[in-house]
């Protein structure tokens, strides 16, 4: 195995880990609430990247049968699993993306409510206002 092959076989996992850690760091250390939500979305897409990377097969086609193939399959020809990318991770992640945007919407609604109550979306200022009993 050459160096290039080794890097290509691991690159997706390394980048998934780096992106996930960027998202985690943003969620922990950023003080702005919208920045925290962007960090959460990056974390989420990193996990989706991991799942989709697992389903890739070298030299495979997209998981949709061509008309000629489906016609042949009707006459008893066997469809080989190696010819098509693994469709199961795609299904799981497709619903995860749409649910993710719905939960991002809930988070943004809470941010707007906090801004309405406290007049700021910076975490230290909100904490100071709660401690002084204002707001």
């Amino acid at each position: 195995m050459t160096v290039t092959e080794f890097i290509v076989s691991r690159l997706n996992y390394w980048i998934y880990i780096i992106l996930m850690m960027i998202g985690l760091f943003a969620m922990i250390s950023k003080k702005n609430l919208i920045k925290k939500l962007i960090g959460m979305s990056i974390f989420q897409t990193a996990i989706i990247l991991f799942y989709v990377s697992l389903g890739v097969k070298e030299g495979s086609n997209i998981p949709i049968l061509e008309h000629s193939v489906s016609h042949a399959a009707e006459h008893g020809e066997i469809i080989r699993a190696e010819d098509y990318a693994n469709p199961l991770p795609h299904v799981l992640m497709l619903t995860a993306i749409v649910v993710g945007v719905a939960t991002l919407g809930v988070g943004l609604a809470i941010v707007q409510k906090i801004h309405k109550e406290f007049g700021t979306i910076e975490e230290p200022e909100i904490l100071a206002k709660i401690e002084s009993g204002d707001g």
Partner: peptide, 27 residues
């Protein structure tokens, strides 16, 4: 310890659930 990227024989790609979907979902 992860399988190589794009390996058609990794556990996730060889397990019978996804192979069943690919082979039989059209039928």
């Amino acid at each position: 310890d992860f399988p190589s990227w794009g390996d058609p024989h990794s556990p996730a790609n060889q397990y019978r659930v996804s192979s069943h979907y690919v082979q039989n979902s059209f039928g």
